[in-house]
Amino acid sequence: MLDYIMKVREKVGTMPLVVSVAGCLILDEQNRVLLQHRTDNHNWSHPGGAVEVGESVEDAVKREVFEETGLRLQNLEFFNIYSGESQHYIYPNGDEVYFVNIIYICKKFEGTPIADQKETKSLQFFELNSLPNMTPNNQTIIDDLKKTISQSISLN
């Protein structure tokens, strides 16, 4: 977790915080999505994380994805912003957050996925109709991705 967030937590404890985060739905050529098996809650989620003080959202998503997967993103496409109750989350340690989750899609990247073993146990591309147990606040995002891909396929 970021030093900034940890310093805030020292002052406010586990009370709810609004936290800006950036994430990426990384798709391969078969439209499978790359998910990370998280070390904190043992569920799967898209890669991403908190925006640091003074950092742009685009830089944050590139940094977080590289730290968690070893991939360098190219050609980010803005997907959506998620907030409110669907982005409420309580970490296993009791820290409560409401994410403002800025999501991108990336179909072009460099590197081979490698789990960092700090935040990420493993990485795997999944078919959208065969997903593992997801972190709850990711479900709305994945549902929207499924709709977007099915609509683009039906238009072709």
Rank of each mutant, 00 (worst) to 15 (best):
V61G: 03
P113N: 05
P132T: 02
K118E: 11
N75E: 12
G111I: 02
T112V: 14
I103M: 13
I105N: 02
G94N: 08
Y98L: 13
N80E: 09
D116H: 01
S152R: 15
Q124G: 00
I90C: 06
L71V: 07
V100K: 15
I105V: 12
A60Y: 01
E58W: 03
I149Q: 05
T69A: 01
L145T: 08
F79M: 06
S130Y: 11
I141N: 03
V97T: 15
A115S: 01
F79A: 04
R63K: 06
E110C: 07
D116W: 00
E64P: 00
T112Y: 12
R63T: 00
F99W: 03
H88D: 14
L71A: 04
K121A: 02
S150T: 13
I102A: 07
K146C: 08
I81E: 10
Q117F: 12
Y82M: 04
S154P: 03
F99E: 02
I114C: 07
T135Q: 08
S86H: 11
S83P: 00
E85S: 15
N138E: 13
L123F: 01
Y91T: 10
I114F: 01
N93V: 04
F66Y: 13
R72N: 05
I81N: 03
S83D: 10
Q139I: 15
D95S: 15
I153T: 09
K146N: 08
Y89Q: 09
Q151E: 15
I90F: 01
Q124M: 12
I149A: 06
F109L: 02
F78D: 06
S130L: 11
N133E: 09
S152A: 12
F66N: 09
S130A: 15
N80L: 00
I103Q: 10
N75P: 02
G70S: 07
G94Q: 10
D95G: 11
I114K: 14
I90R: 13
G111W: 03
E85V: 10
G111C: 04
E64G: 05
S83G: 07
E68W: 02
N93A: 09
E67D: 13
N80M: 06
F66D: 04
I149H: 08
Y91S: 12
T112W: 07
T112L: 11
F78C: 03
L76T: 01
Q151W: 09
T148I: 04
E127R: 13
V57L: 10
N93S: 12
E55G: 00
Q74A: 12
Y89G: 07
F78P: 02
I103W: 01
V57I: 15
R63S: 04
F126W: 09
Q124W: 03
N80W: 05
S56K: 10
I149V: 03
